[in-house]
Design a protein around this nucleic acid. Sequence first.
DNA 1: CGGTTATATAACCTTTAGGTGATTGATGGA
DNA 2: TCCATCAATCACCTAAAGGTTATATAACCG
Lengths: 122, 122
Amino acid sequence: MDLNRLDAVFAALADPTRRAILARLASGEAGVMELAKPFAMTQPAISKHLRVLERAGLISRGRDAQRRPCRIEARPLAEANEWLERYRQFWEGSFQRLDSLLDELQSPPPNPDPTSDKDQQP
Amino acid sequence: MDLNRLDAVFAALADPTRRAILARLASGEAGVMELAKPFAMTQPAISKHLRVLERAGLISRGRDAQRRPCRIEARPLAEANEWLERYRQFWEGSFQRLDSLLDELQSPPPNPDPTSDKDQQP
DNA sequence: CGGTTATATAACCTTTAGGTGATTGATGGA
DNA sequence: TCCATCAATCACCTAAAGGTTATATAACCG
């Protein structure tokens, strides 16, 4: 899992416009104009949002005449999901096995450099 | 699920320092100094990160003499997870039931106002 | 009281994010 | 060829993010 990309993925998901775009793309490809239509926002603004999504790997784009249809690429969502999974213990009922789970995850000492390409284990 | 909070949650998770702090807190409470220690960063910077995490609901803080121990609050992580779950279909193998799944999710027309408190369905 | 420790806050700086309007580029059709 | 359409890019603005140093606040301890 590319942990540097987690930054970009979570940052991309932090904007409601971009989440709505992903939601729209979940039901199939769409061009920029089509994606822009629901929003009180200009086309360049949408293009910027699409660039953010693309740099996060969350969408890819093809070519269909003048259109540049966008397609959802959910792999990064899976990576975000993997990251979150490590904390599932905290929101799912039984904290009983917490200690053994922590052992299992064998938390190493925290990383002194946040720019490093490796997250800590929970 | 508080969808406005999703903005804050994903934004909080977009920073590697904050993810590392959460990872540390997953193994138990810690004070600010203790959290700051692994990072090449001043204490006020860490305090700012903690405020971001707190506003996202990802941590809560107690009082122990001078210390303000931080505790992880994973509820928002569960909410982020719920949001991601809606896209699980895209990263898990069988796309065969995609159409019926989309029907099941009955996507409404996209939201014209991204500041609204409601996301679209995928 | 005075000093030490832990944390928060203020003022500031630089970079990035999210938006705008205007323009440019690519493609297809009359 | 000329024009319309879809989308990207440019120059610009404002606000927010992430860091700094210096200072203030709060609680304990001698």
